[in-house]
Design a protein around this nucleic acid. Structure first.
Lengths: 212, 212
DNA sequence: TGTACATCAGTGAACGCGCGTTCACTGATGTAC
DNA sequence: TGTACATCAGTGAACGCGCGTTCACTGATGTAC
């Protein structure tokens, strides 16, 4: 209802010597606008309830407009997931900037869990079946591999010999913990309430002691 | 294809003096038939591509028939997920039947991963967002809690003091590993190819050593 | 053993719905001269 | 600075589609007598 109101107050044609048009014919940066709208819808309703038309509506644009920027709904979703992996990768890059290799890994796990908790539905999308075939989305695949690279590198730096095992263990732990947390699986459990990222770190510590 | 063949061999309707009717009017056990059809469709296409009409088709029945057994599509899916948790719970019950508490936990982890790998799409459904609100499906919730109970009990039996932590760590590890395995996330990684359940056990061992 | 009848478990036509996608179009913008 | 024109980025009507669900119906089954 306020969308139409907002539109009414503007002449739109001939912006020249008039006020700033609230709704220009051209969006300006619709690609990004759509991605942001998609993230908003995603957070509200989840990936399976997300439709192209919803996203277009949210971006304040007709439902045909997105096709000038994305070939299909799946393409849009892949782009959203890609942004998610970029965010995750950036968080990991920051987490890794610490000298102690053990601390590095613990912080990577923390960052992983924090990312999942910050945008649960996006996290689900990133790893969900909707985009299971990442080969069809090379840019998405690259962003995902970048994130995974941080985990592996940190693990190898800590333990050259068992690096791969350590990486898989830590990654699985962080991944599983993230999923279970956002699913609320621990809610009925007899656990002292604690900050999830602290929990991630505490559980992560269990993984190191196995070194021979 | 063999379903119709199998059905052919049974008379059912007025077996009186005629040939065997290939398609009796009544299915006999449609509820179970629908669940099995749903599992087949699920395995082939995944949960988001699964439709009630598909399932009915697969079960060899009109698309209105399921409503005599399930109130809605969601109800059907919940029932499928419930069966999944029952299977998982049974596998855990078996895994747990071993005296050594440490071995017990390792075997629970193995069972968890095996269950996920046996029916990946069902696993996704069980933990996916489609049935996120388990409160609306009490039977599903109970089956799920039964499985989780095995993990917790095994962990507490091994370490009364840190049982909850151990349970959460092991459960997260198994859950994450399962997810990543069925997503094929490790495929491009420099890991020696190994049996996933063996991997589960190996990683699980890392978790114990942290005891003070 | 036979008959009447209530109940159960199917059928298949119909409903409205919102979706993804296409298309001819038009308004806005940028560039060449 | 002005004009012509190609190109870009929107609009909104239209398409066909398959979906979940409902409903009046009918065939099959079981039970009471």
């Amino acid at each position: 209802m306020n969308a139409s109101t907002a539109r009414t107050k503007t002449p739109t044609t001939r912006p020249r010597a008039s006020k700033a048009p609230a709704r220009p014919y051209h969006h300006g940066n619709l690609r990004v606008g759509l991605l942001e709208a998609a993230e908003a819808v995603l957070a509200e309703r989840g990936a399976q309830a997300l439709t192209l038309r919803d996203v277009a509506r949210r971006a304040g644009v007709s439902h045909g407009a997105p096709y000038h920027h994305f070939a299909s709904l799946t393409d849009l979703l892949a782009a959203v997931a890609q942004r998610g992996f970029e965010t995750l990768g950036d968080a990991m890059a920051e987490a890794v900037a610490v000298p102690d290799t053990r601390e590095r890994l613990l912080r990577v796990a923390q960052a992983y869990v924090a990312c999942a908790r910050a945008q649960p539905e996006r996290f689900r999308l990133m790893f969900g079946p909707l985009l299971a075939s990442k080969d069809q989305h090379p840019a998405l695949k690259m962003s995902a591999e970048r994130s995974f690279g941080f985990v592996l590198a940190a693990a190898v730096a800590h333990d050259k010999k068992h690096g791969a095992d350590l990486a898989v263990a830590g990654w699985s732990l962080a991944h599983g913990l993230s999923h279970l947390l956002i699913d609320g699986a621990f809610e009925g459990l007899p656990m002292k309430q604690q900050n999830p990222e602290t929990l991630a770190r505490k559980l992560g510590e269990r993984i190191f002691a196995a070194e021979p």
